[in-house]
Simulated scan of single mutants.
Amino acid sequence: MLHEGCEIEDGYRRPGNDLINGNNNIKNSAEECCEDCRNTDRCVAWTLTPKNRCWLKHTIGEKRAQSGYKTGTITPTQPPPPTEAPPPPPKTEPPPTEAPPPPPKTEPPPTEAPPQPPPKTESPAVATMIPTLPPCEFPSGLHNVAQGRPTAQSSDKSKKDSGSENAVDGDFNTDANSGSCSWTNKEYQPWWTVDLGETYDIYEVVITNRQDCCPFRLKNAEIRVGDSETFEDNPPCGMMILGRMVKENPVHVRCGCETPMRGRYVSIQLIDRTQMLTLCEVEVMVT
């Protein structure tokens, strides 16, 4: 559907690349959300949730199918054709003037160079290197099978709406205090798991991390996929979440490109850390 200056698509969303947080930006229609984006500097795309939360985007990111959501991009307006400027008047060159001779150079007296400091023997700090992976071509038609499935976690944070089911409720709100994220107590190696109900070919797991605070808490998260209810017996999916990966939102962990991993149970656990585990949404992408 085409609104003035904006293309609207029903049943899709664009995660990440947030310019304006939708939790505080309520709009009654896709047209209002589009108009808000057109009037906001650097806004090029938007997503309207089923709860009328209008998320403005600074980049046109990946589009994903999601029931009840609407998204769109801003159609740039064409500028008027430039008007031809009149030709500049001809330049008149001033008559050349003879430059005065340069003053004679005087050489400064030589000065003795200061002694060089001794070489440093301290070892340089070694930065943590995050391995980069070659581009991955996934098959077309990947979709999420985790939404609404049974879940469990090592503990529920007290005095919070923090149940494990919040991570598969279809709400991508990144404020952990809004009741849309799972949240454990601070403990050693906390974990979360979902039962997909049957075995699938799993290509990728996508985690929407909290953004209101502390995204670094997802560091050392390990994902496992397999058919064992005891998730420690299942093999790891992709790389552990390290370094700059925790700043990405959402975080993409691929289990395989041409060869996916097969499994019914997907788990996420913080390895060798005493910390809280917070997951605002977990998507398991299968064919």
Rank of each mutant, 00 (worst) to 15 (best):
L2I: 01
L2Q: 07
E4R: 04
E7P: 00
D10Q: 05
R13F: 03
L19W: 04
I20Q: 02
N25D: 01
N25G: 01
S29D: 06
A30T: 08
E32C: 05
C34T: 01
D36K: 12
R38M: 12
T40M: 07
D41T: 07
R42L: 15
C43P: 08
L48C: 09
T49R: 09
W55R: 13
H58T: 04
T77G: 10
P79R: 09
K91P: 03
T92V: 15
T106V: 09
P110T: 01
T111H: 03
P114I: 05
P114G: 02
T121Q: 13
A125N: 15
M129P: 03
F138E: 06
P139D: 12
P139F: 14
S140N: 13
S140I: 13
H143G: 02
N144K: 03
T151H: 01
G163W: 02
S164M: 00
N166M: 06
A167L: 09
A167E: 04
G170F: 01
G170D: 05
N177W: 03
S178N: 09
G179K: 01
S180F: 07
N185C: 05
Q189R: 04
V194G: 08
Y203I: 11
V205W: 06
L218G: 10
L218F: 15
N220V: 10
N220R: 02
V225D: 03
D227Y: 13
E229D: 14
P236T: 11
G243A: 11
R244F: 13
N249K: 07
P250M: 08
R254S: 15
E258Y: 07
T259A: 14
P260K: 09
P260D: 05
Y265A: 14
V266N: 04
Q269V: 15
L270P: 03
I271L: 13
D272W: 13
M276D: 12
M285C: 02
T287M: 13
